[in-house]
């Protein structure tokens, strides 16, 4: 049976028709055509599908679209300010924080949530925070470096 889900996505109210069993990640990708959020493992392990619901990072492959009905969703498409990259995105660019890029949207959404709670994380804290985000290319080194750099830049900017 189909049903309409309505939520705020990247600041805009969006509605779409889906099934009760439609996952949030499927709703974002296939109904709203926001394909920046990736499906990796589909078993809530890899973190490629991380989005923010009411500011909290969650794995959107393990949330029903209807559970997000009425909520505020932020995806990777809502992170940059127009053409200007967010400091975390810029830091990934500058520090070679990605290779194939598949895990990157999830990494950046997780990093956003980390820096919200801990504006000046240590390397160890970043590594522990990223335990739910898997990268098979980089060995994490430059991802951690990128997030440290972004934290420094955001603190400097008073963000």
């Amino acid at each position: 049976m189909t049903i309409t889900a309505t939520m705020t996505v990247n600041g805009e109210e969006r509605s779409g028709v889906c099934e009760e069993r439609t996952l949030l990640v499927t709703f974002l990708r296939e109904t709203l055509r926001l394909t920046g959020t990736h499906v990796g493992c589909d078993t809530s392990q890899c973190g490629a599908c991380v989005v923010l619901i009411d500011g909290d990072s969650v794995k959107s492959c393990t949330v029903l679209a209807l559970q997000a009905d009425g909520r505020d969703i932020q995806t990777i498409e809502g992170v940059a300010d127009g053409d200007e990259l967010h400091p975390i995105q810029q830091a990934f660019h500058e520090n070679h924080g990605l290779q194939c890029g598949y895990c990157t949207p999830g990494m950046i959404m997780s990093a956003l949530d980390l820096l919200k709670h801990n504006a000046d994380p240590t390397e160890r804290e970043i590594r522990e925070h990223l335990e739910g985000n898997l990268c098979r290319c980089t060995g994490y080194h430059n991802i951690v470096k990128s997030i440290r750099a972004a934290a420094g830049k955001m603190a400097g900017a008073g963000a």
Binding site: S44, S57, V58, E131, G132
Partner: peptide, 9 residues
């Protein structure tokens, strides 16, 4: 428990 995102749900 689990990881950061799991603890958020």
């Amino acid at each position: 428990i689990g990881d950061f995102q799991v603890r958020n749900r």
